Amino acid sequence: MGELRSDIDGNRTVHLCLDMQRLFGPEGPWATPWLERVMPAVIGLVERAPCRTVFTRFIPPASPDEASGMWRSYFRKWRLVTREVVDPHLLELMAPLQRHVPPAIVFDKAAYSAFSNSGLHDFLRGRGVDTLIITGAETDVCVLSTILSAVDLGYRIIVAKDGLCSSADETHDALLGLYAKRFDLQIEMAECAGILACWSPPS
């Protein structure tokens, strides 16, 4: 079982891949340097069970004025990623992942946490999912927010250590330490190879 506490119940597990979009790729305004480096590990998990994969996309507002609260200030600073400015193709998933949709599905969100789209939790619960394998971008922003939401909702959380990317090594490393030391009862961490060894999705 490696670093995991028990095998992964394939009938109750979904691979939740966060925001692996062209927006964060080499051509995007929010380029995350190691997104391409972790892509092979992420693809390995997707290919194990495309039909058990959920992708999310971060979709900015059309303009800062369409955002609410402090998001208005945020998108005034980052106006170049609002939909009235940004190339819409940059909002798409990275090409190696997009080809798996369908059967993989996509949930769009307007905030950091995947669960800011209320339909995601309903979708997962409706299919009996209680375990999430987490990959994606960025470790210290959307991944962090999603994991904390999932902890509150009671999911078993398996973080694929080599399937996460960030633009800041220091906070990436700090977050992995936080999960291991402060959330050890609720968050498990393993390399993608170890996860694959314990995960047999239904055919």
Rank of each mutant, 00 (worst) to 15 (best):
M1A: 15
L4F: 02
L4I: 05
R5M: 05
S6N: 13
D9S: 14
D9E: 12
N11W: 04
R12E: 04
H15D: 00
H15W: 00
L16D: 06
L16K: 07
D19P: 04
M20N: 05
Q21S: 07
Q21W: 02
R22Y: 03
L23M: 14
P26D: 15
E27R: 13
E27M: 05
G28D: 14
A31P: 05
L35H: 06
E36G: 09
V38T: 03
M39I: 04
M39V: 04
P40R: 10
A41H: 12
A41Q: 02
G44A: 13
G44V: 03
V46A: 09
R48G: 11
A49Y: 00
A49W: 01
A49V: 01
C51F: 11
T53Q: 04
V54R: 01
F58K: 00
F58S: 00
I59Y: 04
I59T: 12
A62Q: 07
S63H: 11
S63Q: 15
P64W: 08
S68L: 11
M70K: 10
M70W: 03
R72T: 15
R72G: 09
Y74V: 14
K77P: 01
V81M: 12
R83G: 05
V85C: 12
V85T: 15
D87Q: 10
P88C: 09
P88M: 08
L91R: 10
L91H: 05
P96H: 06
P96R: 06
Q98L: 10
I105T: 14
V106L: 07
V106C: 08
V106E: 06
F107L: 06
F107N: 03
K109R: 06
A114T: 03
F115I: 11
S116D: 14
G119A: 12
G119W: 13
R125L: 15
G126V: 08
G126F: 04
G126D: 11
R127T: 00
G128H: 08
V129A: 11
D130W: 02
I133S: 00
T135R: 01
C142Y: 02
L144E: 06
S145T: 00
T146L: 00
T146Q: 02
L148T: 08
L148H: 12
S149M: 09
I157N: 00
I157S: 05
K161R: 12
G163N: 05
L164G: 03
C165T: 10
C165S: 15
S167E: 11
A168N: 15
D169Q: 10
E170V: 10
E170S: 13
H172W: 09
D173V: 09
L176T: 11
Y179I: 01
K181L: 07
R182S: 14
F183T: 03
F183C: 07
D184L: 07
D184H: 14
Q186F: 03
I187Y: 01
M189H: 07
A190G: 09
A190C: 10
A190Y: 05
A190H: 08
A190D: 14
C192G: 01
A193T: 04
G194F: 07
G194Q: 13
L196R: 09
A197P: 06
S200L: 09
P201A: 12
P201C: 07
